[in-house]
Amino acid sequence: MFFDSSLSWNDILFLLDGAIVTIAITLASVALGTILGVLFGLVRAGALWWISWPLGGALDIFRSVPLLIQLVLFNSFNSMFRLHWSPYVIACICLGIYTAAFCTELVRSGVLAVPPATRRAARSLGMSWWQEVVSITLPMATRIVFPSWIGLSLGVMKDTSLVLWIGIIELLRSSQIITSRVQEPLLILTITGLIYFLMSFPIARLGAHLERRWQIQ
């Protein structure tokens, strides 16, 4: 079909299947990472130092060790503890914790950017701690960190390519499988790159746009 090569529509569909796996793993791990990240971030920003520092140190480990190594270690728990989890579960948990490690620092910086006077004012109006966090701090912090959060999510999307190491057929792995049949690595890898680019670039642009627009106010 393409340039007289033996690449067929089925191959393209196979690549798109891989892209769907990539997106699914991304969504699951970003969701897990964001929930954990907001919780940990609130703790990091608000708790006493003897809770906040050890948590920060522990999460720092996940940012200082290659994701590939983390995936292999998580995967080895499977046989060590006889968990029989599927690679997808392992990939999502591992990437989710990895995301949480970055998201925590984002949320922390966002929460700390909310003026303390605003928070105290909310409390003195009679709001409980929880009410204040949900309706004052988090909305304001969200506005501050949302562009960076988009960047983080796109980073996770790109990092999902590493899960091919533990045997998941996502976009990059499926491109390799097709390459082994069609024998045209350059063409197939370029198409793969284009798919990644189309998944990432528009959202990256949106993030940059929001960052500019929200900066002015």
Binding site: K158, S161, L189, Y196
Partner: peptide, 23 residues
Amino acid sequence: IEVARNTPALFQIYWIYFGLGSL
């Protein structure tokens, strides 16, 4: 800049390793 930032690093290494190899 946009290709480097919007595709996975592993993809870029693959492209150089397998892609250039095929050339």
